[in-house]
Design a protein around this nucleic acid. Structure first.
Lengths: 139, 139
DNA sequence: GCTTGACCTTCCCATGATGGGAACCCCACA
DNA sequence: TGTGGGGTTCCCATCATGGGAAGGTCAAGC
């Protein structure tokens, strides 16, 4: 069981040292053992958890979800139903955000297409911002 | 020229009073005239600008973009090319963010489909978080 | 005139996730 | 023994927004 410093833990887990300390401060991970010099050192399990968190973050999970996923991950007796529920809830949230962004970009794209983009001041984009025009999906 | 208080300005513009003060503090809008009681009062032009900002925010523009758009909007001699450039840059940013979210939700959706979601502990979702699996687009 | 309630003011704090940097301590190596 | 590269804590910044406290002000009803 090799013990590593925070910078080494950061390198192997892909989580910055800054974030590792932060995760500890909000109780997402347990406080690791300290040396006599008060340096943190991390064991295999801790490194594993950090990598887990890293991948969950890459999938856009927030800390509350990650907290629950970590709990389920540690529990060998867990039911996969809970994991699936968290994942599907998150999928719905991601899809909603993506749809909102897409709607914005579509609206703006259509406006930009109708904008000459030359020396003339006329511009449907500014006109749309100017007047309380119809909702976005009307374009 | 009717002058209104901040709460009335909030109601007609759709921007909260809190945000109106904030926009003023960061110099996004000019400081309005004050009454003897130091109450802010807003004229037609100010209300118009607030509504403009509101709609720009609805399209996802950040404050720096809005600052520039407001400048172009006030300038009757502006060229539409600058407006279009800002808009298209923003469209690209929105599309990129939307694509990132969609990629996450796709990955997670596929994993969830392969998860029984019953009493059994086996779960591809946790397995994916557990091991440094292939990148998301491999699913 | 006085109370009451609704409004205004400024100031501080919080979010979520992350980075930057200061000030200070510690260790290994030449 | 100096130097460089760790480690530690603490504060501040982001982006846009909301909550709330403490205190001043106004208008309406009695």
């Amino acid at each position: 069981m090799s013990l590593v410093t925070i910078t080494q833990a950061a390198q192997v887990s892909g989580v910055s040292a800054k974030m590792i300390r932060y995760y500890e401060s909000i109780g997402l991970i347990a406080a690791p053992a300290r040396g006599e010099n008060r340096y943190r050192h991390y064991d295999e399990t801790a490194l594993h958890e950090l990598a887990f968190i890293r991948r969950a973050r890459d999938l856009g999970f927030g800390f509350e979800d990650i907290r629950q996923l970590l709990g389920l991950w540690r529990d060998r007796q867990r039911s996969s139903a809970e994991v699936k529920a968290i994942a599907l809830r998150h999928v719905a949230a991601l899809e909603q955000k993506a749809a909102a962004l897409t709607a914005m970009s579509q609206t703006l794209k259509h406006l930009a297409e109708r904008c000459h983009g030359d020396e003339r001041p006329d511009c449907p984009i500014l006109e749309a911002l100017d007047q309380p025009g119809p909702p976005a999906h009307a374009w």
